[in-house]
Write a protein that binds this DNA or RNA. Structure first.
Lengths: 308, 308
DNA sequence: AAATTTAATAAGAAAAATCTATAATTTTAA
DNA sequence: TTAAAATTATAGATTTTTCTTATTAAATTT
């Protein structure tokens, strides 16, 4: 049994086809077929059922493949251990980012990061907070960027920045006359928030000290753009995270009303597993983001709002 | 990186010497040296410090070797999965047995077992109950034989037999006149028990409803033989497990006094991890033991004494 | 039923793992 | 301190394994 055999076998199980699997492994189809056969011979069991359309696993095959997966995964960690110890910033890095941070933060650092660390193979995915926690614990994610504190003692949080909340209030609304707003000004009925599942929704609801939103309609949107457009057309207001307001048109910007000091804000952190593998990449990433944010957010006096 | 390279490297770390490691791996020394070098080259780090007398690991080497160990261990499980699924009784099997069971039980089944299942490579170790639990959870043991219930919900217990307790009372002692004894007859001061750490000690103390033994001397012995010899010479009595009494001399046997129905007894079980790998071996082993015990212990009416 | 896709087989080429022989180095002992 | 012994590294030959190309066989699609 060799690691190569296990990798080839996993590829077949994944794509359900010997020819494609061979491509994926950068070898010819006979090579891959023979290695899979050798493994089957050595173990003395058929792993695949070659008769079905996408090639299927035999019952014992699926148990063996599960084990093969853990062996291959453990063997891939070897490189991480070396990079870790050498302090090298390289290798695959799976990063999850919550949707209310992704569109504003990612463009700010991605380009520079991949130029500065070309050996890092970033895999970015948008995930809500609970998926991030779950995948981090399962080792299917190397780090996440989320609103904190999470109060999960199996994960490490390193705060990156504090992002103030900003009110978006159209001219037609009475609050528009105020120079600075306060949480107490806002009534639950008039505020539009993101659909359930976004922690930013919780932030806003918490800020306004209300637990349920009962309106004459039900809004399911995950985009701040939709919210802003709706607010422009109706009798409502909404609350945005600061970074979201930077790229707005100057017309929309006129509708922004900042909170009175101390400004309510959310804490955005990079979150990772206690195993601490890939620490060099995590540090490179967080330093880069912190550097960029220092130029974008001037935070003097903020009041933290928890996401949970 | 290949599994072979990892195995060779682990062997060097274990024996601290390339030449011996090569022998252990059934290859020549240059072969092993070159493979270790290839691994070092591929990872880009020196794993061993060749200058020290027994070859030592570099700091990064020791981290890599830890990972190598888990990879190799996981890959060895592959065969177990196959045997498991095929129901084959073969492969390495690490069994821990508590010291108060080992000397009586082992001779009863070992010879027959290795004849009947020559493909099983039994590794037997005497371990106290807590070591068994710990090693089972850590995967360093495949099964244990111990007094139960353990009340550990991460382990599975399968009772093998119930072993009554028997009093050993010299003629000089007043209790010697009774045909059957009862727990209530026994005073804590007159009973000799095994040293701390043996669960049989707990059994006996529990039976006699006493928690501490305060004597004019302190006995540290793990052997029933010592106990019996002491009892023969002094004003004390002791309690033995039934199987221990079978091979006694007829002189000593005359000092045995059985308990009145229901006889107090301990439960001896085979204990194993929930992962249930190696179930075929576990079943073969427990069937064999049960079969043999059926002939040795006729248990009618017993009263279970817990070990904890 | 013909064409296409997909997996298995065969035979040779390339790569690798291993061996024997030997050199270099370190350790031990005189 | 030097000679002998033990241990590791290197070199070249040999065997084994892996991989490729070419082809066959089987299954699926048209």
């Amino acid at each position: 049994m060799t690691l190569t055999q296990l990798e080839y076998t996993l590829a077949v199980a994944e794509v359900g086809n010997f020819t494609l699997a061979a491509e994926k492994c950068f070898v010819t189809q006979p090579t891959l077929s023979m290695q899979v056969q050798k493994l089957e011979d050595e173990l003395g069991v058929k792993l695949f059922n070659r008769n079905t359309k996408p090639i299927g696993l035999t019952p014992i095959g699926s148990k063996i493949l599960t084990q093969a997966k853990t062996i291959v995964e453990e063997s891939k960690r070897m490189d991480d251990i070396v990079s870790m110890e050498k302090g090298e910033v390289k290798g695959e890095f799976k990063l999850g980012i919550i949707p209310t941070v992704m569109p504003t933060l990612l463009p700010m650092f991605l380009n520079n990061f991949i130029k500065k660390y070309p050996k890092v193979n970033l895999k970015i995915e948008d995930l809500n907070t609970s998926s991030i926690e779950e995948k981090l614990l399962g080792g299917r994610l190397d780090a996440g960027i989320a609103a904190t504190p999470l109060e999960n003692n199996k994960l490490i949080e390193k705060p990156l920045y504090y992002e103030p909340f900003v009110g978006y209030i159209p001219k037609s609304h009475p609050l528009s006359n105020l120079e600075f707003i306060e949480p107490i000004d806002i009534e639950e009925l008039e505020i539009l928030v993101l659909e359930d599942g976004h922690c930013f929704r919780n932030h806003v609801l918490k800020l306004c000290k209300t637990t349920t939103i009962s309106k004459s309609f039900d809004l399911k949107s995950g985009s701040f753009e939709t919210l802003v457009n709706l607010v422009n057309e109706g009798p409502w207001i909404t609350i945005l995270p600061y970074l979201q307001t930077l790229k707005m048109s100057s017309v929309d910007k006129a509708n922004l009303r900042y909170f009175k000091d101390p400004e309510p804000a959310r804490e955005i952190s990079i979150v990772y597993n206690k195993s601490q593998l890939k620490l060099p990449i995590i540090e490179a990433l967080s330093n880069q983001i912190e550097g960029i944010i220092r130029g974008a957010i001037k935070f003097d006096n903020i009041q933290l709002v928890a996401p949970k």
